[in-house]
Design a protein around this nucleic acid. Sequence first.
DNA 1: ACAACAAGCGTGTATATACACCTTTACCGA
DNA 2: TCGGTAAAGGTGTATATACACGCTTGTTGT
Lengths: 147, 147
Amino acid sequence: MKHVCQAYPKTPSPCICLNMKRASRAVTSFYDEVLKPSGLTIAQLALLRHVELTDKATISELAKAMRIDRTTLNRNMKPLTDSALIKISPGKDSRTREIMLTDAGKAAAASGWKLWGEAQKAIKEYLGDNDLANLNQLLAKLEALVP
Amino acid sequence: MKHVCQAYPKTPSPCICLNMKRASRAVTSFYDEVLKPSGLTIAQLALLRHVELTDKATISELAKAMRIDRTTLNRNMKPLTDSALIKISPGKDSRTREIMLTDAGKAAAASGWKLWGEAQKAIKEYLGDNDLANLNQLLAKLEALVP
DNA sequence: ACAACAAGCGTGTATATACACCTTTACCGA
DNA sequence: TCGGTAAAGGTGTATATACACGCTTGTTGT
């Protein structure tokens, strides 16, 4: 995602879902903008970080850890394999694959991680402690909507 | 979007952006599931409703009203023109186009609108008045992040 | 040992999203 | 009037997302 969407009048919408979607787009574009010098999107950085932390994870394990669909993860890996940030090798069980960071991947993750810290800090300050805690609690509750 | 993503362990993540994205996916999949009998996604219903309420709007006007990118709107119209729910005609200014609902579009919007009411009601009850008000306030604040 | 089942994965298809770039058309100032 | 600029729109490309379907490989029960 590269989106930095233009400004639109901020009229409130009654639909909770549309409100979520717009806010999600705004936050994503904010993080993506801050991450830009690393060449990564927030989704890609998340993938790299998860690979880094769970060494030699399989695709399904990774998807479970990241709470995204297995096939989504599969597609999201493409730009990262194309630019040689991750490497996919056959796993011990012939059905599985092991995902690993390359050296370039480790470097990109480190660069992105630093920028992520800045974005995260900026958002935290923007919201303040109270709003931040509320938000995280509400988001967890909403995520629990789906089984 | 058809996604009804499977269950994943609900461990908290430190990244506000990822939390937003997951919650947004969950809420969207909830609405999409309820809307399924209408054959519409929440994004498509929103488009139909906006077209219905702003008669003969141009593409840019519609995008502004919906607070999505103009080119995104353009792409999102395709499934609806394909299934003949909306019609695009040349506008008075030769540069512009007028978007209108067909009869089938009006019927689909009515059907979807009814189901939307059910989804919205369910979410409201799930959250409760307090959380709902907090959520909408926070989402508006986050949306304002982007200019 | 073999058949049934389950687990892991990939791909076709479809939607949602936005940026960069280009074309066409209107408008405005000199 | 004409030339420059602004407005509206379309398309190429890329990412993010997930469902349906099918293939391969491991596991298990008889």
